[in-house]
Amino acid sequence: MNNCLDSFRALALQVTCHAVNYSNHSSQVRSIIQSTINRLDQQIAASIAFIGQDCRLIVLPEYFLTGFPMGESIAVWAEKACIEMDGAEYEALSKIAQKHKIFLAGNAYELDPNFPGLYFQTCFIIDPSGSIILRYRRLNSMFAPTPHDVWDKYLDCYGLEGVFPVAKTEIGNLAALASEEILYPEVARCLTMRGAEILLHSTSEIYSPNLTPKDAAKISRAVENMVYVVSSNTAGIVNSPIPSASVDGGSKIIDYRGIVLAETGAGESMAAFAKIDLAGLKSDRYRPGLNNILSRQRFELYAESYQRSHFYPPNTMLDGEINRQHFTQTQQATIEHLTKLGIIRK
Rank of each mutant, 00 (worst) to 15 (best):
M1P: 13
L5R: 15
F8L: 05
A19K: 00
H25E: 08
S26V: 03
S26C: 01
S27R: 02
S31G: 00
S31P: 01
Q34K: 13
Q34A: 12
I44G: 00
I44R: 03
A46D: 05
I48F: 01
D54I: 10
L60T: 06
L65N: 06
G67S: 13
M70Y: 14
G71S: 07
G71K: 06
E72K: 03
V76A: 14
V76S: 12
W77I: 04
E79G: 04
C82K: 11
M85D: 13
M85P: 12
M85W: 05
G87N: 02
Y90D: 08
A92V: 05
S94F: 01
S94E: 03
Q98I: 11
K99G: 00
K99T: 11
H100W: 14
K101D: 12
K101H: 14
I102H: 04
G106F: 04
A108Y: 01
Y109A: 15
L111M: 13
P116Y: 09
F120C: 00
T122L: 05
T122R: 14
F124G: 03
F124I: 05
F124L: 04
I126Y: 05
I126P: 03
S129H: 11
S129W: 01
R137P: 00
L139R: 11
M142G: 05
M142W: 07
P145A: 06
D149W: 02
D152K: 15
K153L: 13
Y154W: 13
L155P: 02
G162Y: 03
L174R: 01
A176M: 07
A178Q: 12
S179V: 02
L183S: 06
E186I: 14
V187M: 10
C190E: 15
T192R: 15
R194I: 13
A196C: 09
L199T: 10
L200Q: 09
S202I: 05
E205N: 12
I206V: 15
Y207I: 09
S208A: 02
P209T: 04
P209D: 05
T212D: 08
K218Y: 03
K218T: 08
V223G: 01
E224Y: 04
M226R: 15
S231Y: 00
S232M: 10
S232L: 07
N233A: 09
G236V: 09
S240A: 08
P241Y: 01
P241S: 00
P243F: 04
V247S: 03
V247M: 12
G249F: 02
S251G: 12
I253Y: 04
I253N: 05
I253S: 04
I253C: 04
I254R: 02
I254H: 02
A262M: 09
E263N: 07
G265P: 05
S269M: 09
S269C: 09
K275D: 12
I276E: 07
L278I: 10
L278C: 07
L281T: 10
K282R: 15
D284F: 09
R285M: 12
L290P: 02
N291F: 07
N292D: 03
R296P: 06
R296T: 13
Q297S: 07
F299Y: 14
Y306A: 09
H310Y: 10
H310F: 11
F311K: 04
Y312C: 05
Y312K: 07
P313T: 11
P314I: 13
P314G: 00
L318M: 13
L318V: 15
D319I: 10
I322A: 01
I322K: 07
H326N: 10
Q329W: 06
E336H: 12
H337K: 15
R345W: 00
